[in-house]
């Protein structure tokens, strides 16, 4: 690589005396590809500017109170994002509570436990789960999962609803759809993403470290707990945040199942809304400028939240890559 770069430098230099002028194909090629690469990177900035521009109307009318107002009333022209921000966070938290332990178990199984012949098929199955489009998760969730879940909900209401304090989260009519159902389906959706990253980073743990722990008499679990996890901690966290970024922005599956209510209910069994679901539901119906601008301002909020989460995730993942490169 070094040598070839030196060679390009020579080629790009001024032609030696006496040489005829040549069409500067190389510098042009370099500038063209470089310009396009910059353009791709600038897309993020363009998204930010475009969404601020489109949401400006709403942000100017409502100011910072847009973030903390819970009313969303297209008829009276009152718009506030609070219900949707909270809905997005709650459904994503439920999703992560399910996805993190399950992904960890799957990654552990693939990287440490599975016999060689089973490793490939299970890995492929997890990757296929990631390839299934979100609209199919949504359809399955609404038409197949929700009716079955509705039969369990009376049980949840009876048992979990009786817990003092926390019980209020689990009381409600057995509708099948709602915040909890959306969170569960969302969790199933992000499992493959987190599991794939965890598996990859577990596999880069140096064999020498694991073998020394085994030689000292550790059980497999102790190797995982005291060698693999400490070594991969930052990257595992990065993978979790990458999954969170996905859960926060997921649209179709949530739109099908969350119930689309513009009110905030205390119970997780009640319908709710997320930022993405309200945009998907109402965008084409938004007739007034303020209405549309408010929806685009919601999009801006979603973009900013996911951007922060994704940058954080990527930085954590990069740290393991660098660390793995510098270690012997």
């Amino acid at each position: 690589m070094k040598a070839s770069e030196a060679a390009i430098a020579m080629q790009n230099g001024a032609p030696s005396a006496g040489q005829a002028w040549r069409f500067p194909a190389d510098p042009l090629f370099r500038k063209l590809t470089g310009g396009i690469a910059l353009l791709v990177a600038a897309t993020l900035l363009a998204i930010l500017i475009a969404l601020i521009g489109e949401g400006w109307h709403a942000l100017r009318v409502f100011g910072w109170r847009f973030l903390v107002t819970g009313t969303w009333n297209p008829v009276s022209g009152q718009f506030g994002a609070l219900v949707f921000i909270v809905g997005t966070l709650i459904s994503s938290i439920i999703a992560m509570l399910i996805a993190i332990p399950v992904s960890f178990g799957i990654a552990l199984f693939i990287s440490e436990l599975a016999p060689r012949w089973l490793r490939g098929p299970v890995s492929t199955a997890v990757e296929l789960l990631a390839a299934v489009p979100s609209i199919i998760y949504g359809m399955w969730g609404l038409l197949v999962f929700a009716p079955r879940f509705a039969q369990i909900e009376p049980w949840i209401d009876d048992h979990l609803g009786a817990i003092p304090g926390l019980g209020v989260l689990f009381r409600g009519p057995p509708m099948g759809i709602g915040m909890l159902t959306a969170g569960i389906v969302l969790g199933i959706m992000v499992i493959p993403f987190i599991a794939a990253i965890m598996r990859d980073v577990f596999l880069v743990t140096p064999a020498a470290l694991k073998e020394s722990a085994y030689a000292l008499g550790s059980t497999t679990w102790e190797v995982v707990r005291h060698v693999i996890l400490p070594y991969t901690r930052t990257a595992v966290t990065g993978g979790i945040f990458l999954g969170l970024g996905r859960a926060l922005g997921e649209t179709m599956a949530v739109t099908f199942i969350i119930g689309n209510s513009n009110n905030l209910a205390a119970s997780l069994l009640m319908p709710g809304s997320s930022i993405a679901s309200v945009i998907a539901n109402e965008f084409t119906e938004a007739t007034s400028d303020l209405y549309k601008s408010s929806l685009l301002a919601l999009g801006l909020i979603l973009f900013l939240i996911t951007f922060v989460v994704l940058v954080f995730a990527k930085l954590l993942l990069l740290r393991l890559e660098r660390g793995a490169g510098s270690r012997p």
Binding site: A37, L38, V40, A41, T43, L44, A46, I47, A50, L51, G53, E54, L242, G245, R246, L248, G249, E250, T251, A276, I279, A280, L296, G299, L302, F303, T306, F307, L310, V311, A313, K314, L318
Partner: peptide, 23 residues
């Protein structure tokens, strides 16, 4: 650029849709 591209790769598709609507 590689970093920003990775962020773009994971950005919610609904945001990309709104962006396209805007431009």
């Amino acid at each position: 650029i590689r970093f920003l591209n990775d962020i773009l790769l994971s950005a919610p598709s609904i945001v990309i849709g709104l962006f396209t609507y805007a431009i």
